[in-house]
Nucleic acid binder design. Structure first.
Lengths: 183, 183
DNA sequence: GTCTATAGGACGATAGAC
DNA sequence: GTCTATCGTCCTATAGAC
């Protein structure tokens, strides 16, 4: 009866492991389809062991999203372009290198349209922020269209990842979006 | 012990009732989050009663999607515009009147990115068809951008349905998309 | 920090009666 | 066409030992 060897890790390190595993599984199944058992297995933990760290299933999702926000703040610690076209290009280049994260957000963004979804408020606020940031650099309608184009192209790209290049698709789209402007 | 009055319906009528209930619940929760119990309750049936009609949970999803395709074929029985800009405007006007259906597709489109999702192949094929149809009337890159814009604007619209007008958002976007053309 | 044990349900599906 | 009864599995969460 060989039982899986379990190691005792420092809390911070274990937390990182849990968030990585949960990110992958939420991207794959969404939140409704996520099972705490699967997350625990992926970490070599039992379910109560997992719950010790995150409190509840909802707590796990919150932790994943907060962790992403931290990473984003760190990555954009680089000088943020004041030019909207360059800012978008930077965002797209970054996303093209982390399809799993893009998928996490794509799946949760759709799932969380339901008002009682635990990430509903998070994504409502996120949309408000992104549109606001873009609208500081362009007219509001263009801001909406830019956000829509990025989201839509990402979905296409995730669906047939074989033969598509997200960055190239965006460059081509940007040419039309920014046609009547300086950049 | 008051038990819910249950009626015995002709199969075809019952099927319509089931598909309507399932459409609403899948739009709300996605496929992973859908419970056969909830569908059965909404129809005044027990779960085995429901399964008699749809075979399995996967079978129910297939039936919902096939039913949508039929409805779409019927609705576009109208003369289909040969002009891409007019075709898109017609699609958007139609979608603006049925947010629940738009949400059904938005949620399933994201969820089905996972290869083992029961609707994965359906949505891969759907993207192929839509891009193909658009590309018959415009260059391929523009076709991608148009589809992306429609999908992305719909997500924004579903998220803050309070104060946004899908048709107006699209018209504004179309002006930029079709800027260098005849229409 | 992680475990065992367990509570207490919900799940999808089947068998067989009516 | 719908039911009751039931199976076997999965689920989140808690209590308490180590």
């Amino acid at each position: 009866m060989a039982r899986r060897e379990r190691s005792r890790l420092p809390a911070e390190q274990r937390r990182g492991q849990i968030l990585a595993a949960a990110t992958a599984l939420v991207a794959e199944r969404g939140f409704w389809g996520l099972s705490m058992q699967d997350v625990a297995d992926a970490c070599g933990l039992t379910v109560p062991g997992l719950l010790h760290h995150v409190g509840s299933k909802d707590g796990l999702l919150v932790a994943v999203l907060e962790h992403r926000d931290e990473e984003d703040r760190r990555a954009l610690g680089e000088p943020v372009p004041g030019d909207l076209r360059e800012l978008c290009a930077a965002l797209v280049r970054r996303n093209a290198g982390q399809p799993e994260i893009v998928r996490l957000f794509a799946v949760l963004a759709a799932e969380s349209l339901a008002p009682e979804h635990p990430a509903h408020d998070y994504f409502a606020e996120r949309q408000r922020k992104v549109l606001g940031a873009f609208a500081d650099l362009a007219e509001p309608a263009l801001a909406r269209q830019i956000m829509a184009t990025m989201d839509g192209l990402q979905l296409q790209w995730l669906r047939d990842q074989a033969g598509t290049d997200l960055v190239a698709m965006w460059e081509e789209a940007a040419r039309r979006l920014f046609a009547g402007r300086s950049g």
